[in-house]
Design a protein around this nucleic acid. Sequence first.
DNA 1: ATGGCTGCCGGAGGCAGA
Length: 258
Amino acid sequence: MRITSWNVDSVRARLSLIEDWLDRTQPDVTCWQETKCPARRFPRHAFTQRGYELAITDAGGHGGVAIASRVGLADVEIGIPGSKAPLNEQRSISATCQDVRIHTIYAPNGRKVGTRHYEIKLAWFSLLGAWVQMDGLSEGQPTVVIGDFNIAPYDHDVWEPHRYRKRNLTSPAEREAFSQLLGHGLTELRSNGSDVTEPHFTWWNRRSDFFETDRGWRLDHALADPATASRLDSINVDRDERSRDGCSDHAPLILDVS
DNA sequence: ATGGCTGCCGGAGGCAGA
């Protein structure tokens, strides 16, 4: 089963790129972040005509996530059930595709350490961990958590770590939130044989020549329970897609599990 | 030290992203 995740920075602005990419990449389950699209304007046909079932959020012009699957899309949950403001934004979709419970997320950005937005981000991660655990993980349900985490978990996930130490996206509390998520029984999906020292940037600032000079960040991640992680054949960042004219500032993640 | 970008909404320019 091929599972992908891509922060597209507007599903409408990127639609023709997305359609080309879908036809070339042929994901079975594909997760989207920053769709930036109210439900009534979502280009559903691009997915349904290719045989995908679709679940989307209705988040107005900002944020937004979606899942499209051609291997089943059951028990869909939008956002974190039972959450209350300000943690009830539609930042996640959970769905069962084939035998895997897939949670796709678009984490709050946090903006700046110490702000209300930053505190909400930390609280949101805490709630997400509890939800994922309750939603089958603790009972051995095959589980994947994938998307834009807006956290660079390790120093090597930033192109020049010393410049950004203890800032938003790299702060100790955010890294602890990521670590606590793993503590619920999840492991990071990585290429065969690679360890955490291998950089896999997934985001490059649009300004200037940051992509061309590979001044990027690793903010998009895929986690799974150990049994599902052992089914991983490959995981890659599709950097070619980040090099196209009119592309998103994030590259897609592509992973294959047997 | 993200600044030099981009999209959204709405119909200009402020907000947001990471």
